[in-house]
Simulated assay, not measured.
Amino acid sequence: MRYEPLTALHIGEIKMMWNEVWGDRFPMRERILEQNMLEDPNLLRSGAWAARDEATGQLAGYVAAKMWQDDVAEVSYSASLGWIHMLLVAPAYRERGVGSRLLLMAEKALREQGVKEIQLGKDLHRRVFPGVPEPDLETVAWLERRGYTRESHVVDLYRYFQEDLAAFPEVEGVSFRMLQDEEASTFNRFMQRCFPQWLYQTLAYWQQGGSGREFVVAEKDGEIIGFCRINDAQVPLLAQNVYWAPLFPGELGGIGPLGIDETYRGHGYGLAIVQAAVHYLHARGIRHMVIDTTPYVDFYGKLGFKTWRSYVAFCKRERI
């Protein structure tokens, strides 16, 4: 087995291997692989490898590790935190030590950079999965034998909307509308103040050419008090809630993340802004909608969304 640094030349092979394994549930596209690995400034090149069978020339597996490396003045993440973006081995090469070798190579690269905590998936907005897709008991057992422990449990939710047009919410004193391009600075300040955990992906959105059409905002007394992200096929950077669009006969729309300024919580504005998001997607002709990576099944269930996919997050911490 030969282990090669991961490059753009591997993308087509990775897509083929991925779709042989997961294509019926998670159909991969080259655009997702490129944006989430090669175009991510946080990809750790020394921790990104492909395994190739020297006898047949076939790709046997790959791994990609990440850590915070981007140069964004307003955002920073701990240098002790790293991610295994993805580890996948072709079925024909499993139980032959390929996966173990790839994982060890990625972990070694992260440790050499001072990383003390490694998360599987969850690598900010350019991730594929927020954890291990369920049910996959073999992978869970394999990871636990290598020192990884279970953390949070999240789900993706789905609903098909049959109505002619989803109702627009009416809330006294609060209005809902689409964000405008010229409001970028104002919106960034709102995110930095109220939702700093999503500031990085917001800044990246504008950098990728976003125009505001992917954000619904809640406004009260002329001030933005909440937001809800929406996605469709025209989004500048494909988001997790529209990754698996090829599974659906019509266009897929995505909802989330979202949030209401804590000063204004407890008045139903959160559910209302989701209703507004559904309305705007529906107005674009979208009937299939996904909300990804959430534990709030009951909350979104009030609007008819049901669990579609589920994941378990794993983490490995170095003993200090």
Rank of each mutant, 00 (worst) to 15 (best):
G270P: 02
I255T: 04
D261H: 02
L238N: 06
E251V: 02
E262H: 11
Y269W: 14
G270E: 01
R265F: 05
L247S: 02
N241L: 00
R265S: 03
F248D: 00
L237F: 14
G266Y: 15
Y269P: 06
A272C: 09
L237N: 06
I255C: 06
L238V: 13
P236N: 06
T263E: 08
I260D: 07
Y264P: 03
L271Y: 09
G259L: 15
V242E: 08
I260G: 05
R265I: 04
T263Y: 05
Y243F: 12
Y269S: 10
P249D: 10
H267I: 13
G268T: 12
G254A: 09
G266V: 12
P249G: 07
P249Y: 07
H267F: 15
H267K: 15
P257H: 01
P249M: 01
Y243P: 04
A272T: 11
G253C: 01
G250P: 04
P236M: 07
G250I: 03
G270T: 01
G259H: 12
L271I: 15
I260F: 05
P249T: 02
P236C: 02
G254N: 05
A272P: 11
L252E: 15
I273P: 10
A245C: 11
G253T: 02
I273D: 12
V242P: 07
L237T: 12
A239K: 05
L247A: 00
I273G: 12
G270L: 01
A239F: 09
H267E: 13
E262C: 06
V242T: 14
I260K: 07
L247N: 02
P257T: 08
G256Q: 00
T263F: 08
A239Y: 05
N241K: 01
A239I: 03
P236G: 03
I255H: 10
G259V: 13
Q240R: 09
I273C: 13
I255M: 06
P249V: 04
Y264E: 10
H267P: 10
Y243L: 06
T263S: 13
I255S: 03
D261V: 03
Y264Q: 03
Y243I: 03
Y264S: 03
Y269M: 06
A239T: 02
G268F: 10
G270I: 00
Q240S: 11
P249F: 04
G268P: 08
L271R: 14
G253R: 01
L238Y: 04
G256K: 00
L271E: 12
Q240V: 12
A239P: 01
E262Y: 09
G268K: 13
Y269C: 09
T263A: 11
G268V: 13
G250K: 09
W244G: 05
N241I: 01
G266S: 14
G268S: 03
G270M: 01
P246Y: 11
G270H: 01
